[in-house]
């Protein structure tokens, strides 16, 4: 079965690339919180819940939304849209934030709004809520970006008819170091939204995901 990457998004350092187009660039490297807010605002995503998300969810959410702007989910059953994401550091940044609230017995103030984000798959929940995706979903951990792992997992979902489309990628944040890559995978014959019309789909393969990931 031929599967295609019909759109992709890269978020790293001081820039964002969508389908080979540089859509965001800042001369100076900003702190992550400022950077992602600027990308969100420029991307006109318009979803106030963004502001209450933790940092890792903001990163994955924005990387997902920028890909989804290029694609069209028309005609797809929400139950047949999957989300498969991965990273190395799980929710460590938010784990440390929650840990700060329980370190001191005299200032003990653990908060549910922080604790809920101490799971890496919460970003999948955020993406699914925004887009009404209800299909297969999983969060995988690997030491570094593992295109083969993602390709095999997602390929099986299509092979056995579990999904008709799948958002797939890497959403890593550790301290102020971050790197996100999302791709939209579909069967042949899928057409992008107007925004993504000019992009020529790539065959969905581990090699092509590595090519996208190594984009400068």
């Amino acid at each position: 079965m031929d599967l295609y990457i019909t759109s992709y998004c890269l978020v790293r350092d001081n820039r964002v690339v969508v389908n080979d187009r540089l859509v965001f660039y800042q001369e100076n490297i900003l702190k992550f919180a400022d950077f992602i807010k600027a990308v969100y605002q420029q991307g006109q995503i318009n979803y106030p819940k963004f502001y209450k998300m933790d940092a890792i969810s903001k990163l994955g959410f924005v990387a997902a939304e920028l890909v989804l702007k290029e694609t069209s989910t028309e005609g797809l059953d929400s139950g047949a849209i999957g989300v498969v994401l991965s990273n190395a550091s799980s929710s460590l940044v938010t784990d440390i934030a929650h840990n700060e609230t329980i370190k001191d017995r005299n200032g003990y103030f653990p908060s549910p709004s922080v604790f809920v984000y101490t799971l890496p798959n919460i970003v999948i929940g955020e993406i699914c809520i925004k887009n009404h995706f209800k299909g297969e979903n999983v969060f995988l951990i690997s030491e570094s970006f593992n295109a083969r792992l993602l390709h095999d997992y997602v390929g099986e979902l299509f092979e056995n008819g579990r999904v008709d489309a799948c958002l797939c990628g890497w959403t890593e944040l550790n301290g102020d170091i971050f790197n996100a890559m999302t791709v939209w995978v579909t069967r042949a014959g899928f057409t992008n939204s107007e925004a993504g019309q000019s992009y020529r789909p790539l065959l969905f393969s581990a090699e092509n995901m590595n090519v996208i990931m190594s984009h400068n």
């Binding site: 190395a88 550091s89 799980s90 460590l92 799971l119 890496p120 798959n121 919460i122 979903n137 999983v138 969060f139 995988l140 951990i141 690997s142 030491e143 792992l149």
Partner: peptide
């Protein structure tokens, strides 16, 4: 040691598993 992939590696090396583990962290 706090990283889940390092946890995987520790168990992998203890037993000498040929393959790097697939690690699922999905609540």
């Amino acid at each position: 040691r706090i990283y889940l992939w390092e946890l995987g590696r520790t168990i992998q090396h203890f037993f000498g598993f040929a393959n790097t583990p697939v690690i699922i962290s999905n609540a």
